[in-house]
């Protein structure tokens, strides 16, 4: 089982991602509605992969990642960003932040799990 922490402020998108990742049965998913919530969640859950929304009220995906990187157990965890601003320049910026992948919204729920698994294999 791949332990995945999904941080997304939009409840509907959280539900769809939860359903989509549940299809394969390969993921153990914990979801947070904000960066602040996610920082609390990781006290009890050490994910194998982070799926971070970029644009969130409060802490952005980038700020959340910066804080998590300060935690030794999350310093090297692969991160996949999910963004509605997936233009070339933005994607490059996120790659420079160390993103293993950038998934643009709207994403295909039927291939989400496979896409994350492929990224993790390439990252390993």
């Amino acid at each position: 089982m791949i332990k995945l922490l999904h941080v997304e402020d939009d409840a509907d998108i959280r539900e769809i991602a939860h359903l989509a990742l549940g299809l394969s049965g390969d993921f153990e998913v914990v979801q947070s509605a904000s960066g602040e919530e996610a920082l609390v969640a990781v006290q009890d859950f050490t994910p194998d992969v982070l799926l971070l929304d970029m644009m969130m009220p409060g802490m952005t995906g980038r700020q959340t990642l910066e804080r998590m990187r300060l935690m030794p157990e999350l310093a090297e965890t692969p991160v996949i960003f999910m963004t509605a601003r997936a233009q070339n320049a933005e994607v490059e910026e996120l790659r420079n932040l160390g993103a293993a992948d950038v998934i643009s919204k709207p994403f295909d729920p039927m291939t989400l799990g496979e896409q994350i698994k492929t990224t993790l294999k390439a990252f390993a």
Binding site: D10, D12, I13, I16, L19, A84, K105, P106, F107, P109
Partner: peptide
């Protein structure tokens, strides 16, 4: 894109 993600995702599923 956010509402579209939900609409498209729900229908896709």
């Amino acid at each position: 894109r956010s509402p579209l993600t939900s609409i498209k995702g729900s229908m896709g599923l």
